[in-house]
Every structure is written in C-alpha cells, then in structure tokens.
C-alpha cells in the first residue's frame, strides 16, 4: 500500500510538473468549458416569471454552477492519449515499465484534478455565497456524500473513456465513439438540462442509464433533492457500475495488449 502511495506520489508530482510547463494553455482550456454558462443563459429568462418544472432562477444558477464544477472535476481526455500512444508506438515505452500503464495515465488526470480543485473550488464557493437564491445543503454529512459522488462520477467517466480508447487497438477510428458517448452524457447526464426537466421517455431513460451518475447525481445531492435513502441507493448503483466498468476495462486491456503485441506497432 505504502509503496503504491509512493509510486502515485512520484508519478503525480511529475505530471503536475508537466502541467505547470503549459500553465497558460491549461488555464485557457479550463475556462473554455463555458457550456454550462450558456445553458444557464438559456434557462434564466424562462424562470424569470416563476419556477420552471420546480426550478427557480436561483435553482438554475445553483444547478449550472455545480454542472460547471462537475465538468471541471471529472474532465477526462484519456481516449485521445491512448489513441496517440497506440498509433505512435509510445505505448511500447509504457509497457516496458514494471507498472501497468493505466497508473501512468491516471497520474496525469490526478495532477489536473489537483490544479482544478485549487482553482475552481474557491470560485464556486464565492459565487454560491454572492449570488442570491443559490441554496445548497451544506452539512458535513451532505458534503461527504457529495465528495463520494464526485469521485464516483470521475471513476465512471474515466473508465468508460479508457475502455473506449482501448478500442483503438482494433479500430483506428475509435475516437468517434467517444463523441457519441459525449452526446449521450450531455443529454442523459444532465448537461443540457436538469434531467428532472427532460420530457418523457427521455426522463425515465435518464434514470435507468449510467450517465446520471457521471454528473447529475452529485448535483442532486448538493441541492437537497434526494433523501438519504435515495443517496445510499445511488451509491449502490455507482458501485455496481464501477465494478462493471472495471471488468470491461480489464477485459479490453488484456485482449488489446495481446492484439497489440501480435501485430506490433
């Protein structure tokens, strides 16, 4: 365990170093995630004359503020890294190390998350305090629930995209699937509109599909829309999805590497 902490510490330290080399592009890239703000601008005028589907203007601000935060804290781009490494043979260099390459990839994302956490957490807190009508349930227990749900959301997004990226071992255009995934994620995860406001049958679907847990679920927790039982049930579902996604990752990785080493790069 300790040795793993040590390895992750070393990898992540290196990754933060790389990120700091590109600090300007990093900040621009982070701030370019303005989609939630655009969606907020769409909803606000509609909520001016009264709540829309139970959402007041303040609720919309609260929702899209956290939507923005969720996008930051669960940002994943590993499919592009995998695509590059598979096609350019950089995967070989990673395979020579006595550590599974996924840890190397995760360390880069972890470094990014540390930077974003430092940058955006104070920002979100300040906006939440300043803008009237933004109400979150700020109890230690609820914040703990929120943090667990965010980590769950990140894990689900990361392993989904990692597995999609691994398809690059077989198809040179696996990245198209990442775009398809992204559309579904925006629609059923609550990126376009809160899923409570989706028309049927999309709404029912959104509660069945896994995308809700990648964005909407933690927001629902912070906005006090869920009972403790609903939250715990949600965690059980997240755990189930993570087990499934880990299984898919293991399956694709083992076969992908066999494929890769059969045909070479």
């Amino acid at each position: 365990m300790l040795i793993w902490l040590h390895k992750y510490f070393a990898l992540t330290r290196r990754s933060i170093g790389v990120q700091l080399e590109y600090r300007v592009s990093m900040v621009i890239w982070m701030l370019s995630a303005t989609f939630p703000l655009i969606m907020l601008a769409v909803w606000l005028p509609m909520a001016k004359d009264g709540p829309v589907g139970g959402f007041t203007a303040g609720d919309f601000v609260a929702y899209y503020l956290l939507s923005f935060y969720m996008r930051q804290m669960t940002a994943v781009w590993v499919a592009w890294e995998l695509d590059y490494d598979i096609r350019h043979g950089d995967m070989n260099t990673k395979l020579l190390h006595p550590i599974q390459p996924i840890h190397d990839y995760i360390s880069f994302n972890l470094a990014d998350k540390i930077m974003r956490f430092i940058m955006f957490t104070p920002l979100v807190i300040i906006v939440a305090l300043v803008v009237p009508g933004v109400n979150y349930v700020v109890t230690p227990l609820n914040i703990t629930f929120f943090i667990i749900a965010v980590i769950g959301a990140w894990t689900m997004r990361y392993f989904t995209q990692f597995s999609l990226g691994l398809l690059g071992f077989w198809f040179s255009q696996a990245l198209v699937l990442v775009d398809v995934f992204w559309m579904l994620f925006l629609l059923f995860g609550g990126g376009i509109a809160p899923i409570q406001l989706l028309p049927e049958p999309l709404k029912t679907l959104a509660y069945i599909l896994p995308f809700r847990f990648m964005m909407s679920f933690p927001i629902e927790i912070m906005m006090g829309q869920l009972t403790t039982n609903e939250i715990l049930l949600g965690f059980a579902q997240v755990a189930m999805w993570i087990v499934i996604l880990l299984g898919v990752y293991k399956f694709l990785w083992t076969r992908g590497i066999r494929q890769f080493s059969a045909f070479g790069a």
Binding site: A10, L11, P98
Partner: peptide
C-alpha cells in the same frame, strides 16, 4: 529518474 526510482522500487 525519480519516477523510475519509484516505479522500479
């Protein structure tokens, strides 16, 4: 080198 020190233990 430091990363390698860690991952090669």
């Amino acid at each position: 080198f430091l990363v390698n020190q860690a991952i090669y233990e």
